[in-house]
């Protein structure tokens, strides 16, 4: 069976004052049915741009996007509308993702209004753990966690195969974050749905993801099974991310990784490895040659020195 989502060397560039900003630089990835793929990286690394490309909310300049084997990246605006139920998007800020003028019921029913399909709004609200009495409320009358549940219910309305979740818990209280992540895990079990989960926090994703991709300046620098990537990070940037995550036990001794230097400007990428300017292990070859992807125990790494 073809993967639910397949990105084939997609790239997105923006013109900024006569120069070119490369937001996404030739990223390929595949997500199988029922799988959670987590994409982590710092702000500005291109992960949100990639999320929008995966959901076909923003175009690509290069490469292909396939939804369950069907290429959608070349479809015109009108033809892609018929395919949209395949992939739905969950936004970072649930307050902005809901119209202040629509009740919860209207918002969840909107995909049905748009597509002309019929659907069961109370059942959707139950599925995300909300009381159907909330259908008459406006978003402003709900808590942040409730709002995000409404956004998820709306995204589920068209029974998508894939949900693209752009930092779905980043704007929520820590206590609510776990609830929403648990809800997502339950929904995946019930509906065999796939997730592309965008996050900047490895701690958030390591517990729910099957695979993890680490993005740095528009490229996936390390990708593999979640347990493997977290337990034995091979790319120096992944090691840095994991070392900087807060620990459960404050007394635990952690080897600190000290980085110096600044990341290069995405307007002016260096010829070699993009991380070389901050990398503690960088050598001469890193400054001149871009590291090709290498396969190590099921993990793909872009680093000259990974072993």
């Amino acid at each position: 069976m073809s993967p639910v989502l397949e990105l084939d060397a997609v790239a997105k560039r923006y013109a900024v004052g006569g120069r070119t900003l490369t937001a996404v630089d030739g990223v390929s990835l595949r997500i199988e049915a029922g799988e959670t793929y987590a994409l982590v990286g710092e702000s500005g690394c291109g992960k949100s741009t990639l999320a929008r490309i995966a959901a076909m909310l923003g175009g690509t300049d290069e490469g292909r996007v396939r939804w369950s084997g069907k290429e959608v990246s070349h479809l015109g605006r009108r033809r892609i509308r018929a395919e949209r139920s395949h992939t739905q998007f969950v936004f970072q800020d649930p307050s902005a993702a809901l119209s202040p003028r629509m009740t919860v019921g209207e918002a969840v029913a909107e995909p049905f209004t748009i597509t002309g399909r019929s659907g069961d709004v109370p059942a959707l609200l139950h599925a995300v753990g909300l009381d159907e009495a909330l259908a008459a409320r406006y978003p402003a009358q709900l808590s942040g966690g409730q709002r995000q549940r409404v956004v998820i219910a709306r995204a589920l309305a068209l029974e998508p195969r894939l949900l693209v979740l752009d930092e779905p818990v980043a704007s929520l209280d820590v206590s609510v974050q776990a609830q929403v992540l648990n809800l997502l895990a339950d929904l995946q079990e019930e509906r065999a749905i796939s997730y592309l989960l965008i996050a900047h926090d490895l701690a958030v994703v390591s517990s729910v993801a099957d695979r993890i991709g680490v993005m740095y300046l528009g490229r996936v620098v390390e990708e593999g099974p979640a347990t493997e990537v977290v337990a034995r990070p091979r790319h120096p940037y992944t090691q840095l991310l994991i070392a900087s995550a807060p620990r459960r036990d404050p007394g635990e001794r952690v080897e600190r990784i000290v980085v110096s230097g600044d990341p290069p400007s995405p307007l002016d990428l260096p010829p070699g490895c993009a991380f070389a300017s901050r990398c503690p292990a960088a050598t001469a070859v890193c400054l001149t040659q871009a590291p090709p992807p290498r396969e190590l125990d099921g993990v793909t790494v872009r680093c000259h020195h990974a072993a």
Binding site: L57, R81, F91, M102, A107, I114, T115, A157
Partner: peptide
């Protein structure tokens, strides 16, 4: 460019809608 309009477009809404 509001998120909820992008969401409606993402569900297949036409520009007229």
């Amino acid at each position: 460019s509001e998120d909820y309009v992008v969401a409606a477009a993402g569900a297949g809404a036409s520009d007229a809608y």
